[in-house]
């Protein structure tokens, strides 16, 4: 159990349960339907699926932004239900989240310093001097200049904003990062640099990644194992080479075949 950064069993999330005001039964959507997964420490597990497959709901449950309807979650060996009772800070210290749209995930009316200080102060309890030093270190780790601190999010491009968002996730000093489509809003050359950065950070800080993505090529480049999701269920889970070389499930094969390739005739 302790080898696993994240362990979920029979995790289910349904939306719209219960009855409406007039007593009619509501339409129930099973966004996540009995998923069991494990993210080993130090590895990158990719969760692949198309829109509506439930992969973002899964990710939001893992950081405590959504409450599962049923099932068990263990994060860094601790029961998530217990963590939830202790409030968002308990979650934030062990698992962090990187959002798809970096610009939307930074408050437009606060400086980068305001944004980065919050986790350092609230989650780690650092004093002002230590916070200052740590912020410089973090910006350095994501290759951003130190004068970033006094600027506002709209002054940065998408790639730079994503670096800042990654710095914020690192500030919590959590060992597990949930990356929700971290590069799909970025241009290809920026995407490549951010992927490179994520890889370096993982090695440097000994992180474990759960990467949510719809882009199989990105997944193949940086993950160790892949779980393919379809309509709330995991239909295939295997090491990355195996999934791409010998996909077992028909849907996985279709996904791989649909991905556009640079050299069409091969």
């Amino acid at each position: 159990m302790t080898d696993n950064a994240i362990q979920v069993r029979e995790l289910t999330k349904t939306f719209g349960e219960g009855r409406s005001f007039l007593g009619r039964e509501r339409h129930v959507v099973r966004a996540v339907d009995g998923i069991s997964l494990a993210l080993r420490s130090g590895e990158t597990l990719a969760v692949v699926g198309e829109s509506g497959s439930g992969k973002s709901t899964l990710a939001r449950m893992l950081v405590g932004l959504e409450e599962p309807t049923s099932g068990e979650m263990f994060i860094a060996g601790r029961d998530a239900a217990g963590l939830r009772r202790r409030g968002p800070r308990a979650f934030g210290k062990i698992v962090q989240y990187v959002f798809q749209d970096p610009v939307a995930s930074l408050n437009p009316r606060r400086t980068i310093q305001d944004i980065l200080e919050v986790p350092l102060k609230l989650l780690n309890g650092y004093d002002a001097g230590r916070r200052r030093a740590r912020m410089t270190e973090l910006l350095d780790a994501v290759h951003m200049p130190a004068d970033t601190l006094n600027r506002y999010p709209h002054e940065f491009s998408g790639g730079q904003a994503q670096r800042i968002a990654i710095a914020r996730a690192l500030a919590a000093e959590a060992q597990i990062l949930i990356l929700d489509e971290p590069v799909s809003a970025l241009d290809v050359s920026v995407q490549a640099q951010v992927l490179l950065l994520l890889q370096d950070l993982k090695r440097r800080f000994g992180l474990s990644y759960l990467l949510i993505s719809h882009d199989l090529a990105v997944v193949e480049a940086i993950s160790d194992r892949v779980a393919v999701m379809l309509l709330g269920k995991v239909v295939e889970e295997a090491p990355v080479q195996e999934v791409f070389a010998r996909p077992q499930n028909a849907y996985t094969r279709q996904l791989i075949a649909s991905a556009p390739k640079l050299r069409a005739s091969e």
């Binding site: 995407q191 490549a192 640099q193 193949e220 990355v240």
Partner: peptide, 21 residues
């Protein structure tokens, strides 16, 4: 073009990108 990840390249992709940058 070097920055476009492609299925079948696997983790070579990052090495290639690193050399480009």
């Amino acid at each position: 073009i070097a920055c476009v990840p492609e299925i079948g390249r696997g983790s070579d992709f990052l090495a290639r990108v690193r050399s480009v940058f």
